[in-house]
Simulated assay, not measured.
Amino acid sequence: MSELAPSGIEATRRRLTEKQADTVDRLTVAAVEVLSREGYSGTTIRLVAASAGVGTATAYTYFSSKEHLISEVFWRRLVALAPMEPGEADATTRVVAVLRQVSMLVADEPALAGAVSSALLGDDPDVRHLRVRIGREIRRRLGEALGAKDPERLAALELLYSGALLQGGMGLLSYAQVADLLDMCARRLMAETATDG
């Protein structure tokens, strides 16, 4: 298991010193800039490295591919999301809030949103590793929102989320539409399963 980088985010490929963590931070920021300018197909590790002011070989020591780099950008944003406050809201309200929060994570950046969908479907081992971590983090957040052990409902919510985000990533729905659809479907699922018990 790797150490936490000084920024509080675990390095996915290696242990990072403070200087290395700064380099990785610069690369992830540059990746978003290059994506917005060049699009997914035009983005390369070489362009991102140049934009970040680091050598291409240095960038490859941290990221195995552009898919890995883009997946890392999403992972960092996900773990940086503020946790939902337990408050007095019921489970349905908490679940809907988590789904809306995660679905809107890249909503304001269409190039990044589309790139994340493509990147996370990659077969790069580093992407697979991040895909599992992202899935676990979303499951953890949804599980906390549910508040009760209900593996079937949790699995249905995860499937609902991943399907809706894929629709957004393919450009079939806007991310605002994804959030609204998740809201409607989650409320229906929570109501139906509540009456089934």
Results as ranks from 00 to 15, higher is better:
64 S>A: 13
75 W>E: 14
93 T>D: 13
155 A>L: 15
81 L>D: 09
100 R>H: 13
33 E>V: 15
191 A>K: 06
100 R>I: 06
28 T>H: 03
17 T>I: 12
145 A>D: 05
127 V>D: 05
61 T>K: 13
169 G>N: 04
130 L>T: 04
108 D>T: 06
107 A>N: 08
154 L>G: 02
21 A>S: 12
135 G>F: 02
47 L>Y: 10
176 A>N: 13
175 Y>M: 13
58 T>L: 10
9 I>E: 04
80 A>E: 11
46 R>T: 15
157 L>A: 03
65 S>N: 09
146 L>M: 08
29 V>M: 11
9 I>V: 15
136 R>A: 12
74 F>V: 07
172 L>G: 13
45 I>Q: 02
85 E>R: 10
67 E>V: 06
20 Q>R: 10
162 S>Q: 15
127 V>W: 11
184 M>G: 08
28 T>D: 04
143 G>V: 00
146 L>F: 02
41 S>F: 13
90 D>P: 09
60 Y>Q: 04
128 R>S: 01
114 G>M: 09
36 S>Y: 07
148 A>H: 03
163 G>N: 08
167 Q>H: 14
183 D>C: 02
57 A>I: 00
94 R>E: 09
45 I>T: 11
66 K>E: 08
151 P>N: 05
182 L>K: 04
4 L>Q: 13
179 A>D: 03
160 L>E: 08
178 V>T: 01
142 L>M: 05
14 R>C: 13
189 L>D: 06
6 P>M: 12
142 L>G: 00
163 G>Y: 04
98 V>K: 08
122 G>F: 12
68 H>Q: 09
15 R>M: 11
23 T>I: 13
22 D>P: 06
27 L>G: 07
163 G>Q: 06
15 R>V: 13
6 P>I: 12
63 F>V: 01
28 T>L: 05
111 A>V: 12
130 L>D: 04
109 E>W: 01
145 A>G: 03
73 V>I: 10
4 L>Y: 15
125 P>C: 10
18 E>G: 15
147 G>P: 09
152 E>Y: 11
116 V>G: 06
86 P>V: 10
191 A>M: 02
149 K>N: 10
41 S>C: 14
121 L>S: 14
133 R>W: 11
89 A>R: 12
173 L>R: 15
90 D>W: 09
114 G>L: 08
165 L>W: 04
